[in-house]
Computed example of a mutant assay.
Amino acid sequence: MTTDISTFDLEEAGAVLAAESARFASFGWMRGTSGNLSVVVSRDPLRLAVTASGHDKGELTPSDVVLVDGKGAAVNGGKPSAEAELHARVAALTGAGAVVHVHTVASVAMGRRVPGGILFKDLEMLKGIGQPAHDVEVLLPVIANSQDMEVLGDRLEAARDPRMPAVVVAGHGLYVWGDTPRQARHHTEIVEWLLELELTGD
């Protein structure tokens, strides 16, 4: 199965998202029906395959996805995640090919502890998001939550650091992105590691 978004069809995208969701669910990052994932299947016009609303993310099948447009609205029926609009906004804003949203304890706890944003430096794991391990500070923004995805997207756009492919939504969880589903997965695992380190540090 290819992970080149230029050749994804909806069934392939669904299979990829089901596998990625099962992986994240196994870590306890998508408990119950929480969290959502997407992959870009077309750039012009922008179309994304997004995990369907209300499904256990550890038990998704390739058919449990919905095709949405650049505003997060379903194209061919189905009920996408309520946050599909934000996925589309991130894809358009950053050029990402895949977006991950997980509800991790570390992201919520650190968002409360450091509401102004979380700085990382002098850590080898920063290489996993394409940054030097030393002599640079990288900010993981924390933004206030909203049930209005346009408002939340505006906050994300205003706060994001181009060097950090992620933001924390206060009281909610973590949004992470990458060029491909695999890169988005790697970025998610790296950022979550960084958050867990900060949470357990002095």
Results as ranks from 00 to 15, higher is better:
Gly28Phe: 13
Trp29His: 12
Met30Arg: 00
Met30Leu: 14
Arg31Cys: 12
Arg31Phe: 07
Arg31Leu: 13
Gly32Tyr: 08
Gly32Ile: 03
Thr33Ala: 10
Ser34Thr: 07
Asn36Gly: 01
Asn36Val: 00
Asn36Ala: 00
Leu37His: 06
Leu37Val: 03
Leu37Lys: 03
Ser38Cys: 09
Ser38Gln: 10
Ser38Val: 06
Ser38Pro: 10
Val39Glu: 01
Val39Ser: 07
Val40Glu: 13
Val41Cys: 11
Val41Leu: 12
Val41Tyr: 07
Val41Asp: 10
Val41Arg: 08
Ser42Arg: 08
Arg43His: 09
Arg43Pro: 08
Arg43Gly: 07
Asp44Ser: 11
Asp44Arg: 09
Asp44Phe: 01
Pro45Glu: 02
Leu46Arg: 02
Arg47Ser: 12
Arg47Gly: 09
Arg47Glu: 14
Leu48Val: 13
Val50Gln: 06
Val50Asn: 07
Thr51Ser: 05
Ala52Cys: 07
Ser53Asp: 00
Ser53Lys: 02
Gly54Thr: 01
Gly54Arg: 01
His55Trp: 07
Asp56Gly: 11
Lys57Pro: 03
Lys57Phe: 01
Gly58Ala: 12
Glu59Ile: 06
Leu60Met: 11
Thr61Gln: 10
Thr61Tyr: 03
Pro62Val: 05
Pro62Ala: 07
Ser63Leu: 11
Ser63Val: 09
Asp64Trp: 01
Asp64Arg: 01
Asp64Cys: 03
Val65Ser: 11
Val66Gly: 04
Val66Leu: 05
Leu67Asn: 11
Val68Ala: 05
Val68Thr: 11
Val68Tyr: 02
Asp69Ser: 02
Asp69Asn: 10
Asp69Ile: 01
Asp69Ala: 02
Gly70Val: 01
Lys71Thr: 14
Lys71Tyr: 13
Ala73Arg: 13
Ala73Trp: 03
Ala73Phe: 11
Ala73Val: 06
Val75Leu: 12
Val75Glu: 06
Asn76Ala: 15
Asn76Tyr: 08
Gly77Pro: 11
Gly78Ser: 15
Gly78Lys: 13
Gly78Cys: 14
Gly78Ile: 14
Lys79Thr: 13
Pro80Asn: 04
Pro80Ala: 05
Ser81Glu: 10
Ser81Gln: 11
Ala82Glu: 07
Ala82Ser: 15
Glu85His: 07
